[in-house]
């Protein structure tokens, strides 16, 4: 462990990467062990992690978001080693630096579209950046639905809101889990373009995890699981 730490520092001091993992492994509750290849994402660059269902793609995403503890190895996000953070610090770090876009759409059902976005802007530090909300919803075609309940939105609108919630707080890194798996070809391209565009505007890195081969042609950097 000590050796690996020293190695880690030597390895990282040269160039700070947005995301970097080293010898990452995770153990499921049943003891099954999962090893991941080392990944690296430079600031402003994107990475596609591709692999068939059941190889632990989502697990990798949760590890990178600090939602699951690794068995071994090191995860660094935006120059911070996640292992070194306490639970409380991790919550704050995640809230500030990481944006998550899920395959399923999760919203606060009791709030309308605008309030869902406002809520995301309020934690961990309260920004309530109206202009940002305005611009983002305008670009994502949600501007006319701000006062709607999320349940009344169409599938496509929910997808776009889910993306908006992933990046309204200008995260350093956007982690997207199967963002295109439920979509037809046209919408698949639309969503990928949208994610890339928004990542560009926020100067964020984008890490997409998918089994959807249609996405492959859109990204230069790819890792196979």
């Amino acid at each position: 462990m000590q050796l690996s730490c020293i190695y880690f520092y030597l390895y990282f001091c040269e160039n700070i990467q947005m995301v970097k993992t080293l010898n990452l492994a995770y153990a499921y509750e049943n003891g099954e062990e999962l090893k991941f290849p080392n990944i690296e994402v430079s600031p402003g660059k994107h990475l596609l992690v591709i692999g068939p269902s059941g190889v632990g793609k989502t697990t990798l995403l949760y590890l990178l978001a600090g939602l699951l503890p690794p068995l071994r190895g090191i995860i660094s996000v935006a120059g911070t080693e996640l292992n070194s953070l306490t639970r409380k610090e991790m919550d704050k770090f995640r809230g500030n630096y990481i944006g998550l876009v899920f395959q399923q759409y999760y919203f606060i059902k009791s709030l309308n579209v605008s309030d869902n976005l406002r809520l995301r802007q309020s934690f961990p530090k309260n920004t309530n950046d109206t202009q940002r909300r305005h611009e983002l919803t305008e670009r994502l075609g949600l501007k006319d639905y701000l006062d709607e309940k999320v349940a009344t939105l169409s599938q496509g609108q929910q997808q776009r809101l889910s993306i908006a919630l992933g990046l309204i707080h200008r995260p350093k890194i956007i982690l997207a889990d199967e963002p295109t798996s439920n979509l037809d070809d046209v919408n698949c391209v639309k969503v990928i373009d949208l994610l890339k565009e928004e990542a560009e505007i926020c100067k964020s890195s984008l890490l997409i995890i998918t089994h959807d081969l249609r996405v492959m042609s859109h990204f230069q950097n790819q890792v196979m699981l």
Binding site: D91, K92, G95, N96, Y106, F107, K109, L119, F123, P124
Partner: peptide, 16 residues
């Protein structure tokens, strides 16, 4: 439960 999990993703602590 999922909304609470979402709030944790947003950076809210268990205490909050």
């Amino acid at each position: 439960r999922q909304e609470l999990a979402l709030l944790r993703i947003y950076g809210l602590r268990t205490g909050q």
